[in-house]
């Protein structure tokens, strides 16, 4: 098959994963949040409600697509695509195993962050185009959040890049293969040097993906539905699909950077390579479950508190930590 055909198939595979992930994650969210709230979640459609989200997708597809009269027509139409496409792009650099990946990018880490940094532009576009005060406020909050937290997000992972000496996600995973003293996995989360890195990364990543407790851009108790208020049917579906997809990407990055990616400790390399994609997906969904746990237990913070935390705390701390870890890495090696 030609190179072009293979690339097209890879993009289709990423799209399939993105759509499937959306269905799985909505069900998971309902169940996890349900049990956290001591209720059952969906129970009636299918076994334990497993078919509920499939039915919801069918419902979204068949609903009427309403375009309010006052909206900025062009921007209103493009915005879901502007949110969706960067979200799909972000799958390109993720290593699902040593052979399963769309591309082997030399600067994969930077690429993934770049793709994610475009999403809030689409949200801002949707917020403006809706010509609705709540939507605009939601869009503005998303933009403010993104400007504030993109810097600490990028800075926070630099110690890992410094230690590994590469921004290739595959190389970062390879560096975490095996064990220390035959017991402790060589995952970066086990290295005390990266504990502050992990905390900084987790906070910034949650903010960047608009996750509760940082989902100021769609805070339903104050902004109705934020930027998505005026959207209906599949346009709304696309906005939400990319939201879930971004959450998946951030979780996958967490696994790649801190939890050894597709590798398994304590088992021979051949075994760990065979089950690579399975291991990767399991780890990713575990991280997603923890993110949902956070979502179910923490109250939403205020926008001014969030801005203060970003500009006055996280940026200086991550800068200081880069200097400290740079010195430590240099002295050790």
């Amino acid at each position: 098959m030609s190179a072009l055909g293979i690339s097209a198939l890879k993009v289709l595979a990423a799209l399939g994963l993105m759509l499937g992930n959306g269905v799985v994650m909505i069900y998971m969210l309902r169940k996890v949040l349900g049990h956290l709230h001591i209720r059952l979640g969906p129970m009636h459609v299918g076994w334990k409600g497993t078919l509920q989200t499939v039915m919801d997708v069918l419902k979204l597809l068949t609903k009427e697509d309403i375009t309010p009269r006052a909206v900025d027509r062009w921007l209103f139409r493009i915005a879901p695509a502007v949110v969706f496409i960067p979200s799909l792009m972000a799958y390109a650099a993720l290593p699902f195993s040593d052979t399963w990946r769309v591309t082997n990018l030399d600067s994969g880490l930077l690429y993934t962050f770049t793709a994610l940094s475009l999403v809030p532009l689409g949200i801002l576009m949707a917020g403006w185009a809706s010509s609705n005060k709540w939507s605009l406020l939601g869009g503005m909050r998303a933009a403010a959040q993104q400007i504030a937290y993109e810097v600490p997000l990028l800075l926070s992972v630099l110690p890992i890049v410094m230690l590994v000496g590469s921004m290739n996600l595959g190389v970062i995973v390879e560096a975490q293969r095996g064990t220390v003293l035959a017991v402790i996995p060589r995952w970066f989360i086990m290295n005390p040097l990266f504990w502050p890195t992990f905390v900084l990364y987790s906070i910034s990543a949650l903010v960047e993906t608009n996750q509760t407790p940082f989902d100021m851009s769609e805070a339903e108790s104050e902004l109705v539905g934020g930027f998505a208020t005026e959207y209906s049917a599949m346009k709304f579906g696309l906005l939400f699909l990319s939201e879930f997809s971004n959450q998946f990407i951030v979780a996958a990055l967490t696994v790649t950077l801190f939890f050894g990616g597709w590798t398994l400790p304590w088992v021979p390399e051949a075994v760990s390579n065979t089950f690579g994609p399975l291991t990767f997906m399991l780890k990713t969904y575990l991280v997603i479950a923890v993110m949902m746990w956070i979502r179910g237990t923490f109250p939403r913070v205020r926008i001014d508190q969030l801005m203060q935390l970003g500009w006055q705390r996280l940026i200086p701390i991550s800068l200081a930590w880069i200097v400290i870890s740079g010195v430590v890495i240099k002295v050790w090696s």
């Binding site: 770049t114 940094s117 475009l118 532009l121 933009a143 993104q146």
Partner: peptide, 11 residues
């Protein structure tokens, strides 16, 4: 993309 499209344009 990161600096000009992602940040400057947002600004």
């Amino acid at each position: 993309v990161l600096v000009y499209a992602g940040s400057v344009t947002v600004l």
